[in-house]
């Protein structure tokens, strides 16, 4: 397989767009810090001194997590819109937006991750204490 990026007809446009994107990564700080990405990449054997590529990986991971989370949010909203219709306080609307395992496993299934979770965990020390303190 020979992926030669420079032998295209419109290579000037692609190269300028790509270099602009890479240059914009230098100024953009992703939520996942560079040090963390470097750690995990080094753990799996990547040698990469370029900060832009580290940022690229960070942005890709951030996009992935954000997509999963927004899918879970849509699942959450859809589930609660079908159940609760009489109580429409804004406070409760904010409170209802909780990331639960149910929505997360539904959204992760679309990305190829099968999450099998138990209904009740007995091995965690914070399980039986207080349901209010369990939510972060």
């Amino acid at each position: 397989m020979n992926h030669n990026p420079q032998s295209g007809d419109g290579k000037h446009d692609d190269d300028t767009a790509l270099s602009d994107f890479l240059a914009s990564l230098m100024e953009y700080t992703p939520t996942i810090p560079d040090e963390l990405v470097e750690h995990y990449l080094a753990k799996s054997g990547v040698q990469c001194p370029d900060v832009r590529l580290i940022r690229l990986v960070a942005v890709a991971t951030q996009k992935f997590v954000a997509e999963v989370a927004s899918d879970a949010l849509q699942h959450c909203k859809a589930r609660q819109a079908s159940v609760i219709k009489d109580k429409r306080d804004k406070q409760q609307k904010d409170k209802r937006l909780i990331l639960t395992m149910e929505d997360l496993s539904k959204s992760l299934r679309e990305y190829g991750v099968n999450v099998k979770h138990q209904e009740y965990f007995a091995d965690s020390p914070s399980t039986g204490i207080d349901p209010a303190s369990r939510d972060e």
Partner: peptide, 30 residues
């Protein structure tokens, strides 16, 4: 990231699962 998407709160187990998936994603990418 979850907060920026729009969640206000989260179950501990759900957050840990998503974190685990994120780390696995990074490692698989590498």
């Amino acid at each position: 990231i979850c907060k920026s998407v729009g969640f206000r709160r989260s179950q501990v187990s759900a957050l840990e699962t998503l974190t685990l998936v994120a780390t696995k994603y990074l490692e698989a990418l590498g």
